[in-house]
Design a protein around this nucleic acid. Structure first.
Lengths: 192, 192
DNA sequence: GGCTTAGGTTAACGACCGCTAACGGCCCTG
DNA sequence: CAGGGCCGTTAGCGGTCGTTAACCTAAGCC
């Protein structure tokens, strides 16, 4: 009895395909019929699983944000006390996420404004907490740099790591290694 | 007689507002009535100036790409022979652009797929040439790094510099200086 | 064996949206 | 002062899209 999901549930299928389609053509650019077709059912059948198109997007965005935050917290706890190792671990985790879920990364910062007020607030709160993990550890490593600057730098490095959807080829390992070096290089320049 | 545009023409007004709205709510999320209202006319009046909504987006994206490329070429020519200065100049120019036209930056890599085939090919070609300017000069500075890696690194630094829409505060000068340092730091890590 | 529930189907409604049609004022020019 | 662009307007058409309604089938349960 494996604890891994053996077969993806229908909800998960739908979310996965919806993420792919939203990333490719934008939230408004994809119809529910299209999402349905992608999982082998048609149009309104989706409403047995989700309250509406908006609900799919909301679940996607909240899910990403939660996974990023909890993953980040684990990594912070694991290497607590060694800021250098914490930062490296956060970078590695973010790279893994960016490479594994390019579609989600794309949707993540592109369609946030399409959410209902409540969901949007939740997502933003989760994002903010995730950013704060990074800001805290970077400030430990660069105590002489102001907090606002560090926060901008963290966002900028996110932009660097999330550029992954735009790039082709080069193989998983090489891409990981390269992004790792670039991110460390950018943060290293904070004190120079 | 100044060579600067004294009053923006109506076309320019429309393009500017359309860029802002597209950036905020996405191409499909904005109606022509809304664009019209933003410039004080209503809905179908836009069709005196543009063939359609698609044409506005096309002109925006082609315009950005052309400005980036010609600006980049000038900078390359100005500092020719000194790769370090060329790279610095390219970075500075891209930062200026990113800070001056946040809306355009957002629309730039978000709505490319909404273009008609011909326009999309043109934009991609311009983008590719711009990237090549960067790749060439970075390869001069890091001859031992493979071309594919350099190209990925350039895209990643674009992601870093284009993260500008996400960040607040900190003042123009400080932001410029910070982004400059981060970009140089990232490229510097290519050889480490 | 009947009842319920889960998970589909097709038809259709209502809203919205891009775009066109038809029209009208303003301003320049001969 | 007549005429023709230029630049607007409002009305409305046609298509698309999210959503609901009504119905159907297969599986599990008492």
């Amino acid at each position: 009895m494996s604890t891994r999901a053996a077969a993806p549930t229908r909800r998960e299928q739908i979310l996965s395909e919806a993420a792919r389609l939203f990333a490719a053509r934008g939230f408004h650019g994809v119809g529910v019929d299209e999402i349905g077709a992608a999982v082998g059912i048609s149009g309104p059948g989706l409403y047995r699983h989700f309250a509406g198109k908006d609900a799919m997007l909301a679940e996607l965005l909240v899910g990403i944000s939660e996974r990023l935050l909890t993953g980040g917290r684990h990594r912070v706890a694991e290497a607590a006390g060694d800021p250098g190792r914490v930062l490296s671990s956060l970078i590695d985790g973010h790279i893994d996420f960016a490479l594994d879920d390019r579609a989600l990364i794309t949707v993540h910062d592109r369609e946030l404004d399409r959410l209902r007020e409540a969901d949007r607030k939740l997502v933003r709160q989760l994002q903010r907490q995730y950013v704060e993990l990074w800001v805290d550890v970077v400030r430990e490593l660069h105590p002489e740099v102001g907090e606002a600057e560090v926060r901008v730098a963290v966002h900028a490095v996110f932009g660097l790591l999330n550029s992954t959807p735009h790039l082709a080829a080069l193989g998983r390992e090489a891409t990981e290694s390269l992004l790792r070096r670039l991110a460390h290089g950018a943060f290293g320049a904070l004190s120079a």
